[in-house]
Design a protein around this nucleic acid. Sequence first.
DNA 1: GGGCGAAGGTGATTTAGATCAAAGCGACAT
DNA 2: ATGTCGCTTTGATCTAAATCACCTTCGCCC
Lengths: 251, 251
Amino acid sequence: MAYRGLSEAGSHRLETVAGHAAGHASSTPSTTGSTDAWNEIRKAPGTRRQSYAAHDVIYFEGDDARHLYEIVSGAAMLYKLLPDGRRQVVEVLGPGDLFGFDMDDQHDCSAETLVSTTVLVFNRRDIQASSAAQSHLTRCALQQVCAMHDHAVLLGRKSAYERVASFLMRFVPNRGMAHCPGPKDENNDTGVVSLNMTRQEMADYLGLTIETVSRVISDMKRKGVIRLEKHDRVIINRICGLCQLTGTHAD
Amino acid sequence: MAYRGLSEAGSHRLETVAGHAAGHASSTPSTTGSTDAWNEIRKAPGTRRQSYAAHDVIYFEGDDARHLYEIVSGAAMLYKLLPDGRRQVVEVLGPGDLFGFDMDDQHDCSAETLVSTTVLVFNRRDIQASSAAQSHLTRCALQQVCAMHDHAVLLGRKSAYERVASFLMRFVPNRGMAHCPGPKDENNDTGVVSLNMTRQEMADYLGLTIETVSRVISDMKRKGVIRLEKHDRVIINRICGLCQLTGTHAD
DNA sequence: GGGCGAAGGTGATTTAGATCAAAGCGACAT
DNA sequence: ATGTCGCTTTGATCTAAATCACCTTCGCCC
C-alpha cells in the first residue's frame, strides 16, 4: 500500500468533565435508536462478529463489496488515495455506524480501524431481502449524506483554524448544532475529548498537512482554548469559545 | 439572502462532438434505469409537476422538508452558506437526480435551479409508504454518498488545476472512470461540454475563487487543452489529455 | 534504563491561491 | 447605435498554508 504516514492510532470515544452521559457525538449516523427490525438482522444466520486490531485494514478500495459492517465498539475511517499517495479520509465512524454499503459491487473507499474494534459483518443479500433492513440502511445513508455536506463546507470553505475547531466540536455531545442548548452549568463549560487519531489522520481528514494541524493545536493551547494531556486527550476549557471558532455560527 | 454574487446562470446538459448519445454524465445519481415501481410513484395522486425559472430557489436550508424532488429536465444545485456569506455548493444535479430527501424534517441545504427546470414533487409520506420507492431512494442516496466521497478528495487534496479538470471530465459521458474505454475514434478524442454554470457557481462548487477558476480555464486554453465558445461552452481537444490533468489517474 | 523508531512540535522559507484593482465583453433596454 | 449592468478576464500584490529541515518527546523492547 503506497502511503507516507503508515500506521496511526485513534478512536473517537468521548467523555465530558461536565458529567454528561458519554454519548456518541459523531455527525455521522450514530443511529443509536436502531429499530427492532434491525435487531433481527443482527441475529441473522449469515451475520458474524469480527474483531480487528488497531490500524487493521478491513477492506481496500476496489475490493468486492460482499459485506456490510456495523461498528459495535471502537472506531474506523474510510479513505481514498490518489495514485501519487495523497490521501483523503472521507469518514470517521464510531459505534452504531454502518459502512461498506457502496453503490456498486466494489468498495469505493478503503476502510481501516483507528483503534481495536469489533464489528458485525452482514451479508449484503440478507440486507437486500429485508425491507426493514433497507429502511435502516436508507436512514444511515441519508445521515451520511448530510454529514458529507457539512464536511464539504469544511473542506471547501473553512480556514485551518476553523477546521480544527469544527473537528474538535464534533466530539462534544449535544453541543455545536444549530440550536445549541449552551452549557448545562454556567460556570463549567468544559469537556474532555479523546481523539485517538494521529495528527496525520486528522490532517488527511481535514484536508491539511500534519504541520498545520500541529500548529493550530499549539496555538489553541497558547490562547487557552484547550489544554492537552497525552497528545490525543484534549481538554476544552470553554466549549462555547471553541464553538465560536468553527465559523459555522454567527458572532 | 446574504450572498455576494447573486443570480448566476447555468445547466449541465452535455453534448459530444464525437457523436455519443448525449447521456447524462453526472457522477451523482442519474439513476436513469428507474424501476417500474418508481414509475408508479411518479403517478401517485400526491405527486405534482412544477417548473422553475433559472436561479429560482426551490427551498432554503432550514425549511420544513415536506417534499422530495426529481429533476425531469434542467439542472439544480444544493448549497450551504456560512453566516459570513461563504458558500459551498455541495451537489450539482441533472435529470433523473433526486433531492430534498434529508434526514431530519428540515432541509440541510438550500436548493436552487441553474437553468429553467422542471421537477416532479413527491410527498414524503407517499415515499415512506412504498418499499419499492424506498429502495429507489436508497440507491440514490448511496450513489450520492459515493459522489460526495469523490468530491471530498477533490476539495481536500486536489490542486486548482486538477479540480477544474475533474469538473470538466464530470460531464464527459463514459470517460474518466476507473476503467475508461478510451476514445472511440482514435483520431478524434474531442467533446463539447455546456457548463451553464457561472464562474462563481463553479468556484463555489470547487472550493476556489472565481478568479482562480477563470485563470485555470484561460491557462488550459493557452495550453491547447480546451477551446471556448461563449464562456460556458467548452470544446475539449483531447479528452484523454484532460483526464491526465485530474490527478485521479496514474501517469 | 538506555537506545531506537515513530510521532509530535517548531522555525525558516516557499508558493499556490486569495485578495485587491482594473479593464474587456456581451446582452439587453433605451 | 449607445449606455448600462453583470459577468469574465487579467494583472499586481499579499498571505495562509505547504514545504523543508530539524529537534523533542514518547513508548517500547532488549
